[in-house]
Structures are given as structure tokens and as C-alpha cells.
Design a protein around this nucleic acid. Structure first.
Lengths: 150, 150
DNA sequence: ACTCAACTGTAGCTATTGCTACATTTACGG
DNA sequence: CCGTAAATGTAGCAATAGCTACAGTTGAGT
């Protein structure tokens, strides 16, 4: 009888779920860094309060996560001071922004309604590998047919 | 100055991230239920040990999560006994299996290499809404062009 | 029947992300 | 200046998901 109960091939590790777990670890960082970049762009200054409103969580949660991201050299702040991006943070934010835009455009290109495209892109973007992203980009650049228009 | 710093529209809640957080809450349930179904199908019996190997975590983690899923009426077990699916669990597993297959086929259809398609499908499947899934299904059923063959 | 290895459960730790309640700081207006 | 409201920080709680170490069960083989 076939191999083990592993339903997915384990080419790069003991379990495909390992990658998903790793993604979750960076997901928060990516969301916050991207949000900081957006807020900075819109208001010129990013405060804990802005992030709390943007992410839909309490200011306490934001404070703690910002502290962690500062220790990871992604954000830069001081008590009662605005939050800025480090060089690494800027770079990560740019990558995330680009990837998010690609995923969103891709979903729209295959015919997903805008509101669901927004919601799903938020969750999907963190789980899209390099090859998948490239395929999405190619698809958006050159949609194979008028699939979206009946 | 425009609206708020919300970069994404908030059509169905205070923040698009709320949905992502909700998805995460059910993600574990879905993964475990699906794994139980697979193991049951392959070996006829599902033990804590099988799940631990399948998910790449320790048996302790599995025990605790199985207990929670039992309290949620998705799994059914007893101390030192095999793990089975409840009716609700069966239903959820079937839905997940179908969705996973769709996402994976879709990724393959847009040209993602099989190994990355496996990995990414694992992370993406939990964040795919009904409309997005339907679009993927339509795409797989009727690929617009020979996008995958250079 | 008994022994023993494998399996399972329990205790107790860490880390992350939520929260409320309370304390402190900033900054603005009078 | 000084007071106050808003913003921020801190303390301490809950739930989830990891882990190691140790204890208890099961079941197979002798």
C-alpha cells in the first residue's frame, strides 16, 4: 500500500505545514510594516493610535508588536514618539506592497469581485512563493483571454 | 485630507485584517480535520502519533488540539483510543479537501511548479472566499489559453 | 502471566496575540 | 503656568500553539 499517510509530498521538509507556520511568524511583521508605510505616506507621521485603528486592535497590542519589530530592526521609535521605518523596514514594506498589489490585481484578473479580492488578497499574500508570484504577474501582464467578460 | 489611513476598503468590518484573524482561528481545525480524514482513508485508523508525524509537531500539541476539536464536535476520541471524525468533521473535511484540490489545480494551471503549488496551496486555501474559489474552479475547468506551455 | 517498547497523557515552561484597567506623559488651551 | 484630554505605556489576564520531561496504558511477544 502506497507510502505513508502524508498526503502531500515532502520535498523541502518534514511537513508542508512547517512552511505555513513559518509564514505566520512573519505575517504580523509584514502587515505592520506595510501599514506603517501606508500611514506614513498618508499622514506623514505614524502613531500607535493610527496603527491600532488601521489593524483593528487595541493600542496595547500595537505597542507590544511595535516593540518586537523594533528589536527586529524593522521599525524605529521611542516612548511617546512617532513610529518610523528602518532601512530594512522600508525594503520589506516595498516588497509587501508590490506583492499585495500583484495578488490583488491577479484576483481581479480572474474575475473575483473587488471587495472579496481585497479581503482574500490580505490573507493570501503571505503564502505566495516566488514562482507563484511570478506566474500571477505574468498572468496580469498578459491575460490569456477575456475570461472575465462573458 | 482623504479618509483615514485605512488603505483597504472596509466593506464588511472595521478592518480587512479581522477576517484574516478569523480565518486563522479555523485554520488549525481545518488542517487537522483534513489530516484525520486522509489518515483514516490511508490506514483505516488515526492515532495521535499519525497526526503528529503528519503535521510535523509533537504528540503533545496534537493531543491538546484534538481535545479542543472534540469539544467543538469535529473529532471524536477517547483516551488511548483512535481518533474519528464526527458528522460535522466529515463534512468540513470534504469541503476542505475539495477546496484544497481546487487551489492546487489552479496553481498548476497558471504554471506554478508542482512542489511550490503544494506548499502554497497549503497556506492559501484557508484564505480563499467563495467567489475566489468559484473563479479558480472556472479557470481550471476551462483554461483560457495554453499559458502553461512555452 | 509478565515484560517491555511504543504510544498517550499530564505537568509545566515559552512565545505570540488578543483584552481591560490603571498609570503616566504630552501637548494644547485658557 | 497649569489643568485636562488624548495618547501612550504598564500590569496582569486569557487563549492558542509550540516544546521537554516524566508518568501512565496498551498490546505484543516470550
Amino acid at each position: 500500500m502506497a507510502a505513508s499517510a502524508q498526503r502531500r509530498p515532502s520535498a523541502s521538509g518534514p511537513s508542508p505545514f512547517a512552511k505555513v507556520r513559518r509564514d505566520h511568524a512573519t505575517e504580523t511583521a509584514e502587515d505592520y510594516v506595510e501599514a506603517v508605510a501606508d500611514i506614513l505616506h498618508e499622514r506623514g507621521e505614524c502613531r500607535v493610535r493610527d496603527l491600532a485603528r488601521n489593524m483593528g486592535v487595541s493600542h496595547v497590542t500595537v505597542t507590544r508588536i511595535v516593540a518586537r519589530l523594533q528589536s527586529e530592526d524593522l521599525l524605529d521609535t521611542a516612548p511617546y514618539r512617532p513610529i518610523r521605518l528602518t532601512a530594512r523596514g522600508e525594503k520589506l514594506a516595498a516588497e509587501c506592497r508590490r506583492r499585495h498589489a500583484t495578488v490583488r490585481s491577479f484576483l481581479l484578473a480572474i474575475g473575483v469581485p473587488p471587495d472579496e479580492a481585497d479581503r482574500d488578497a490580505e490573507g493570501i499574500e503571505h503564502h505566495v512563493g516566488a514562482a507563484t508570484l511570478e506566474c500571477m504577474r505574468r498572468f496580469v501582464d498578459r491575460p490569456p483571454a477575456s475570461e472575465t467578460s462573458p
